[in-house]
Design a protein around this nucleic acid. Structure first.
Length: 411
RNA sequence: GCAGAGGUACCGAAGUGGCCAACCGGGACAGACUGUAAAUCUGUUGGCUUUACGCCUUCGAAGGUUCGAAUCCUUCCCUCUGCACCA
């Protein structure tokens, strides 16, 4: 363990507090930071990741960004891949038990998780641990002893369990063990601080209790607010489809940000970007003063795309968006399908084959709704064939395009 | 184990022998409109085709009754509640 120097206490606290929902207990954090300042030993900051759903989105970025801040302050980031707990399935926020994964699947997912998280974290200074390393070796009596440390009433306090119980939805016994497993992770890595969304508060607190049982100084817990998804009401989650993935391509990323309701502009700005608080405040005032929120939203979209891709990509995405939706022109790059006239294919066949429609019925109904056009001409006939031109562009709905090129045309 | 309730399309939820490919709501998709992929209004939302009151597959699973079943019967699987049992 190398020793190092850290920024002064109040500076660290300022950074750590920014955007946090809760720090419990704050005095412990101060104490731990002071200790680290004196000894030069970094704090061990734990974040658990759930390998059952390895697609990270902006919701995850909130807590990852916080972890990054700890890294930048000189502390040790510890990422726990829940490969073992993935076999249990975390019930949070969902009313269906997850299908259990195999250990191999969770390992693989853990890898892609880390890849995506590296867009935010400093990947060189992360310790990655797989919790099967310690959980898989526990004996049944160890598990029972662990389970004895909490009561059923405590477990049922957890909002998700309580709700499901009240709604007479199934709760499997093994789900109750999840918080305990997560707590064992804290014991295993001797975490000083554990990060999580506010929905994790319960689990994080159990970690404190169990660490104490094992004679460790309990971790400080730091929760981050959950952000609303693109629909503006529900929290961002993959299950609800209101998310923006971290590896979303720049164009979709930009477009999805622009589609959020106006009231999310300020919260997203302040929690998802590095924009200084004064700047966010300025934007907030401008909007209240009647400035068109579109401009702020465009800036937000550019900022986010720039953070996850590049400034260049952000500009290109904005141009692409304007081209498509303001000027209603086809995009510059369109997938091309080579068509041989003698094949006798109907337009619908081609659209189905290229995935622009998922069934011919869908295609027919889209044609009926005048959602299909060729080179700007509306298609009305479901038995339409490809026009006898070297090349044409088919548009389905607002966003689906296909260039069809005749096979004999040289290019 | 006993008793009661229940399992319907992406989700929620109607439907208890034919008019059911299945009301309605959400979501999704589309058209109009718009600063926007927002809001609003309208439409579509199992598949196939010769687009038709046509054909095929679907209402936990498998069988059966019937001219005809999501709807009735049998067996099985699963969930919830209560009781019983219980280290």
């Amino acid at each position: 363990m190398t020793t190092r120097t850290f920024p002064p206490l109040h500076e660290q606290m300022d950074v750590i507090r920014r955007g946090a929902a809760e720090i419990l207990p704050e005095e412990d954090l101060v104490r731990k930071l002071e200790h680290s300042l004196q000894t030069g030993i970094p704090l061990r900051v734990k974040l658990g990741c759930d390998p059952s759903k390895p697609d990270l989105h902006l919701g995850h970025s909130v807590v990852l960004r916080k972890l990054r801040q700890f890294q930048d302050l000189g502390h040790q980031a510890i990422l726990i891949v829940g490969d073992f707990t993935g076999m249990i399935g975390d019930p949070s926020g969902r009313n269906k038990t997850r299908p259990p994964l195999t250990l191999e699947e969770t390992r693989e997912n853990g890898r892609t998780y880390f890849e995506q998280a590296s867009r935010i974290l400093d990947p060189k200074h992360v310790v990655i641990q797989y919790n099967s390393d310690w959980l898989a070796n526990m004996r049944f009596e160890d598990v029972i002893a662990l389970a004895a440390k909490v009561t059923v009433a405590q477990m049922l306090e957890r909002d998700d369990f309580e709700k499901r119980y009240r709604n007479r939805e199934p709760i499997s016994l093994h789900e109750l063990l999840y918080p305990l497993a997560q707590a064992m992770d804290s014991v295993a890595v001797r975490s000083d601080i554990e990060l999580g969304g506010t929905d994790q508060k319960f689990n994080l607190l159990i970690g404190r209790e169990i660490q104490r049982e094992y004679g460790q100084s309990p971790q400080v817990i730091l929760t981050m607010p959950l952000i609303a998804g693109t629909d503006g009401t529900e929290k961002m989650s993959k299950a609800l489809g209101n998310y923006i993935a971290l590896d979303e391509n720049p164009n979709d990323f930009y477009g999805k940000v622009l589609s959020i309701p106006d009231h999310l502009i300020v919260p997203w700005f302040s929690i998802l970007t590095d924009a200084p608080p004064e700047h966010v405040e300025r934007i907030h005032k401008d909007i209240l003063a009647g400035k068109n929120p579109r401009d702020a939203k465009r800036e937000l979209a550019r900022t986010l795309v720039a953070a996850y891709h590049s400034t260049e990509a952000a500009r290109a995405a904005e141009e692409h968006f304007d081209r498509l939706f303001r000027e209603k022109l086809p995009p510059e790059e369109i997938e091309t399908y080579i068509h041989s006239p003698e094949s006798g294919e109907y337009l619908l066949d081609i659209l189905l084959k290229t995935g622009l429609i998922s069934s011919k019925n869908e295609g027919r109904s889209l044609i009926k709704q005048s959602a299909v056009s060729i080179d700007g001409e509306r298609v009305h006939d479901p038995l339409m064939r490809v026009p006898d031109t070297p090349e044409c562009v088919v548009k389905v709905g607002k966003r689906r395009f296909l260039r069809i090129r005749r096979a004999d045309t040289n290019h």
